[in-house]
Design a protein around this nucleic acid. Structure first.
Lengths: 74, 74
DNA sequence: ACTCGATGTATAGTTTACCTTACATTTAGT
DNA sequence: ACTAAATGTAAGGTAAACTATACATCGAGT
């Protein structure tokens, strides 16, 4: 119940990005698949450093992948 | 020795922002002064959530406060 | 029917972000 | 000279991010 205030579009972006799999994204940004799973599920939000690497993996600015202010909006 | 790849402009921004003190910024974003000190010194990078709150405190997009890719550049 | 890749879930362990407290140093004001 | 605000530094503790391993489920091919 971490009251996670940060959301993300990782799952959506993975599919827009040539059907990238969790494992492929994990490898690309240098974490384990478990971490990607947890982020997609919203279990916790990533470190800033990891957030930057994920944004880079999608060639997007960080704020188009992650957003502050509750929920699935935006 | 965290090999911190994320840098920030917090100290600079504090002075541009009506001479805001470490303590004032800490209060505004809901952490202790020690955390601000550590961030300014580059001891570690903040959580994504805290990064968002700090950017909000300066009324700037996150990527104008924090940057990825080594060093004092940018 | 069988295999295999992708995903979901769980548990235990390490690392690091952040807190608390405390004290020392510098600078400005009186 | 004294005080007080702002900053630097350090040590011990908690919580959350992340790893490692393991197993289970589901869908697509063959």
């Amino acid at each position: 119940m971490g009251k996670n205030l940060v959301g993300n579009h990782i799952r959506k972006l993975r599919f827009n990005h040539d059907e990238m799999t969790q494992q492929q994204l994990a490898d690309k940004v240098g974490v384990t698949r478990q971490t990607i799973v947890a982020l997609e599920k919203g279990n916790y939000s990533p470190s800033l450093e990891l957030a930057f690497r994920i944004a880079l993996a999608f060639n997007l600015p960080l704020e188009e992948v992650f957003f502050y202010g509750d929920q699935t909006k935006q």
